[in-house]
């Protein structure tokens, strides 16, 4: 899932210093699961802002609403009748949600309340570890299910590099060498020959927003969208 962490409170206070009436929109999907921007976090942030602004004798009226997903028009539609009552909208969703919200309501300033960190697995409650950089060229089948883009500090497709050090990475002895792990796993599975296959590097250059249309679906005229 997408994970995020709340921005420092001081940064949030600065962003909102000129506003007196704000709507805080939470997102009930990924950021709710990773405890960054769901209903509960909206309540906590609003309570904090209310207290901090009262203490500065500059009260703010901040309301909260948490919708199922901010990256879906269907759910954003719930806000259509509400946002114009506010001077600004803040979003506790990931970067996708914030942009989609801002796109739907171009007449009103939208501010992000979280920093989106990436795609991560849930190790335990409150503990998330990145596993995917969504490079769009998945090689996990050749690397024993260990992602070299995410787990290797250099993100190289043909490793290990000269910095591998008895199973650790040269950047930090606590950081395992991804290619050492890949070697060990492929060896255990008896398919070490996979490591000899050369892969073209990821094409990170000239990145433009990627569009995905699943088989059986098609793009529709934006005019027809809700």
């Amino acid at each position: 899932m997408i994970v995020a962490q709340r921005k420092p409170f001081e940064e949030i206070m600065n962003m909102l210093k000129g506003y007196k009436k704000v709507l805080n929109v939470g997102c009930g999907t990924c950021v709710a699961v990773c405890l960054a921007g769901g209903e509960k976090e909206v309540t906590v942030l609003n309570t904090e802002l209310d207290m901090a602004r009262k203490l500065k004798d500059n009260p703010i009226k901040i309301d909260g609403i948490t919708i199922e997903r901010q990256c879906d028009r269907e759910y954003l539609a719930e806000l259509d009748s509400k946002v114009d009552d506010y001077e600004a909208v803040v979003s506790m969703a990931c970067g996708v949600g914030v942009q989609f919200l801002a796109e739907r309501f171009p007449q009103i300033p939208v501010y992000p309340m979280v920093d989106t960190s990436g795609l991560a697995a849930n190790q335990a409650v409150g503990w998330y570890e990145e596993r995917c950089r969504s490079c769009n060229q998945c090689v996990l089948g050749m690397t024993g299910g260990i992602c070299p883009v995410t787990m290797c500090a250099k993100g190289i497709y043909n490793g290990p590099c000269g910095g591998t050090n008895n199973g650790s990475c040269e950047i930090d002895t606590e950081q395992p060498c991804a290619w050492f792990m890949i070697y060990e796993r492929l060896e255990r599975q008896g398919r070490l020959d996979n490591i000899l296959e050369l892969h073209a590097p990821v094409e990170w250059l000239d990145q433009t927003p990627r569009t995905l249309v699943q088989p059986g679906y098609k793009k529709v005229d934006p005019e027809d969208l809700v």
């Binding site: 409170f9 001081e10 906590v44 904090e48 207290m51 901090a52 203490l55 500065k56």
Partner: peptide, 8 residues
């Protein structure tokens, strides 16, 4: 910690 951030 949150209270300290807020100013209490």
């Amino acid at each position: 910690n949150l209270l300290e951030e807020v100013g209490l």
